[in-house]
Amino acid sequence: MSTSAIEQTPTPTSAATSRRRRGALSSLLVYLAPLAMFLVLMVATPDVLSRTGIMSLLVLSAVLGIAAVGQTWAVMIAGIDLSIPATIGMANVLLTTLYAKGWSFGEIVVLLLVLSILIGMANGVLSSIFGLHPLVVSLGVASVVTGGVLISVDGNTGGDVPGFITNAVSPRGSVLGVPLPAALVVWVLVAVVVVLVERRTVIGRQIFALGSNVTAARLALARPMLIRVFVYSAGAICASAAGVLLAGFSGGASVDIGAAYLFSTITAVVVGGTSLLGGAGGYARTIAGVLVTTEFTTLLIGFSVGPNMQQVMLGIAILVLITVYGRDRHVAHRL
C-alpha cells in the first residue's frame, strides 16, 4: 500500500470538467446537425443557396419553432401536447374570419390569448386532477377546440388577412428597415424568452423538477397543477401565434392547417435530444431540432415527396432517434 496512490486518486474537479466537456461535446453535435443537414440540402437542391432560399427556410423554421415551444415543455414535464394543431387551426380561422368581419388585429390577439389560456388550463387541470395521461386529455381538448371553432364560424373558414402578416412571413420582408422577415425576429425573441425562463426562473427549474420526479417536486414546493397549466398555456399561446403567422402564407384558412405540426413539433423536440421521459433537455436543443426538421422536409419536397410520404419519413426519423437516445437510460445508469 503506497500513500502516493491515495493522493493521486479521485480528482473530482477534473472529472467534472471532463463531464462538462463530454456534455458540451454531445450538445455540440446537436447544434452542428443543422449545418450538416444544410450542406446535404445544398448538394441536393442547389437553389436553396440564395437569399430567398435561406430566408424561406428560416421563416418556415420560425413558424415551426414557435409552434414547438409547447411541445418542448410538455415533453419536459413527461407529457405531450396533441392539441397544438387544433390551436394553430383555431387561431388561423379566427384571425381570418374575424378580421374580415371588421375586428381589429388587437382585439383578435386578446381573444386568442384568452382562448389559449383556457386551452392550457383545460389541459393542465384535467391531466392533474383526474390523473389522466396528457395524451388523452390534449386529444380531447383538441377535438373540442376544432369543433367549437367550426360551430362558431358556421363552417365558413375563409376571410381576410392583415397585410403585415403576409409581409411578416415573406422572405423579402423587413423590420424597421432591416431586411429580415418579422416572423424570424419574433422567433428569436420568443426563443430568448423561453430559454431564459427555463434557465433563470423558479418555474423554469420546477418544470425540470416535475418532469424528473413528481413526488419529489411536490415536496420541494413545486405545484404540479400550476406548472402544468403554465406549460400548456404558454404552449397554446405560441401555437396561436404560429397559426396567425400561417395565415400570411396563403389565402384560404382552415382548421386543419396545423395538422402537419403534430408530427413536426414532436420530431423537432426528439431530434433536439429532449428525452420523452421528461426532466431533461430544453428549448435551445429544440431550436436545432426545428432547423433540421425544416431542412429535412425541404429536402423531401425538393425530391417531390408528397405530404403523406413526408409524414412517413418523419415518423421513421422519430422512431430511429427514440431507439438511439433510448439506450441512454440503460438500467446501469440507475444503480
Partner: peptide, 8 residues
C-alpha cells in the same frame, strides 16, 4: 422516490 431529481 421522494427526494432526488435524477436528471438534474
Amino acid at each position: 422516490e421522494e427526494g432526488l431529481f435524477r436528471t438534474l
